[in-house]
Nucleic acid binder design. Structure first.
Lengths: 333, 333
DNA sequence: CTGAAAGCGCTTACAG
DNA sequence: CTGAAAGCGCTTACAG
């Protein structure tokens, strides 16, 4: 029936002594037929090693079983885990992910998105290097189901982001549970949205616990080891030194740990330290290994992928911002 | 001719008063026909806003115009720029990139690759988190054109990697050109292949220039700021201190710069410092901003993508390891 | 419960 | 130089 020697649905149908229509319905669990027929067709397909030609299926069914993944990230510390999660969620449903690496140039971006639309993607996932900076392309305008992952879309869209406040609260609660009473927060530049979120949650938790909620204990700076180092110098040259430090990321925490050691302070015996991001290469190499907050980005990607699948299938429209919980990864700091 | 209201090649043919066969050939620059006819068809297609249905084209032409991108990276510092380059090289040719995020589990990996093959990808790009660690899947066994990007494939395959030795030599040559005579190399763990490569090139260049090629001037350690800090302590507590330091990455370099400042040494007045990776967020924030070596990973991805296109088109088979030059990014250190 | 037939929208020998 | 026709390998109304 077919020129090439690849097994087609015609071969399966012939062998099962049914029509290709019936074979198709049997394999796709559609239509009605005797259960025995369906089973037989499926078994024969497996025996023959039949793999449906996706290209043909796409043309008939008029959709591509693929989604576009838009990103403006060319560095990837946070984006790649999200992408891996999206991909994992979709692959089991035979949906593949087309990568579309946008630059910061909207004109180029639009051209890229055009080719994505030409490929007839069934939906779009938008992600980006920073939560608080929109992509060069307005993905929500696209005539397609769209989900934002580790990126904030417009209110009428569906966005998945880490719950920064919950993550920060988790960190502070952990320190309090260790019996710490004077907790400082050393964090990144105030221009980052997450810095405000985490600092807000920090203040709230500390206040709630009836501890000293002194603004001098919140130190915004840079996302670097050396800032952690420097901030420790500032904090510990005062009368009342903290007994715990919640750091805005793991690199800061690493600088903090090193600075404390240089001062002869034990971690965690004298001062408890907790990081954020759970960047394994940094957290595990610290001495002692660093306790940290994990944003579960792969899981976030997975949920975004699953939600996009639901939208594509026309299930109840979801919208708004879904904040996913962070988790505490205990090490020895 | 068609049920939907989307513009098809039938609409174009009708309007141009030619057959669909001629329209197809005109638009694809195949076949022979009067130049005038070709132009007219193209113009009408543009006027009508005709966009060919890629799904149909794929089925007829029996290829998907897509390639699979295999990676085992879920962190992405180096992989994402490579991916962006690959994507940029292919998108202009209407070829899209299917992301396939392998875990470290070969069984899962194999299943993922199966679905990629089902999608009839025309080729594969394999990349990974570390140059010197193979993927869980042996991509070279796949019955498809395959290119390795920022990953070493088997000798019979085509691999693109940065020229580590050239990059290191570039760094050392720059320091020598600044009049530096006693150059140290502070770098990462010896278990990394790149550490050996860069250190080898460092020794060769220093020897060639007739400078002190003392093994005590090569300090392997960790990829962290704190190791840079510590290594400076070791180097400068000796009689003969270096006047230049070539660092294995930018984080080390940052620690080095901070440590030198703490010792009251001027950078670059007393000691020149150069990093590796050109990780902008680190290099630009250093005080002074850090001169560094850039591996040009996006360009590497671009070349790998272009090479894969050539393989897919059946042009002369290429193989072996292509080392792409690094470049020097001058800042103020 | 099953099948014949049309159709998805292109491309590509082949004939003229 | 141009076109009629078959074909890519499935799916899906529709008829029975």
């Amino acid at each position: 029936m077919t020129a090439s020697n690849r097994i087609t649905i015609y071969d399966v149908a012939e062998r099962a002594a049914v029509s290709v229509a019936t074979a198709s319905k049997a394999l796709n669990d559609t239509g009605r037929m005797a259960a025995e027929t369906r089973e037989r067709v499926k078994r024969i397909a497996t025996d023959l090693g039949f793999r449906p030609n996706v290209l043909a299926r796409n043309l008939s069914s008029r959709h591509s079983r693929s989604v576009g993944l838009l990103t403006d990230d060319t560095y990837g510390r946070f984006t790649l885990p999200v992408m891996a999660g999206v991909s994992a969620a979709l692959i089991d449903h035979g949906v593949s992910v087309l990568l579309c690496a946008l630059g910061d140039d909207p004109v180029m971006g639009r051209a890229y998105v055009e080719t994505l639309l030409d490929k007839q993607v069934d939906g779009i996932i938008a992600t980006g290097k920073r939560l608080d900076r929109p992509l060069a392309i307005d993905a929500a305008q696209l005539p397609l189901p769209t989900v934002y992952a580790f990126a904030l879309g417009p209110p009428e869209a569906l966005s998945f982001v880490p719950d920064e406040r919950q993550g920060a609260a988790l960190a502070v609660r952990h320190l309090i549970a260790q019996g710490r009473r004077r907790i400082a927060h050393i964090t990144g530049p105030e221009s980052f949205h997450v810095v405000g979120e985490r600092a807000g949650a920090f203040r709230a938790m500390v206040g709630e616990a009836g501890l000293a909620a002194n603004d001098a204990l919140v130190l915004p700076g840079a996302w670097t080891e050396s800032w952690g180092h420097e901030a420790v110098a500032r904090l510990f040259n005062r009368a009342e030194a903290p007994d715990a430090i919640f750091c805005g990321n793991d690199q800061i925490a690493r600088g903090v740990i090193d600075a404390l050691r240089e001062r002869g302070l034990g971690v965690p015996s004298d001062v408890s330290v907790i990081g954020f991001d759970n960047w394994e290469i940094v957290a595990e190499q610290a001495r002692p290994p660093l306790t940290s907050i994990d944003m579960n980005l792969k899981e976030l990607g997975r949920q975004a992928g699953a939600a996009l699948l639901r939208l594509i299938n026309g299930e109840a429209a979801e919208r708004g911002v879904v904040k996913l919980p962070c988790s505490l990864v205990l090490r020895n700091s």
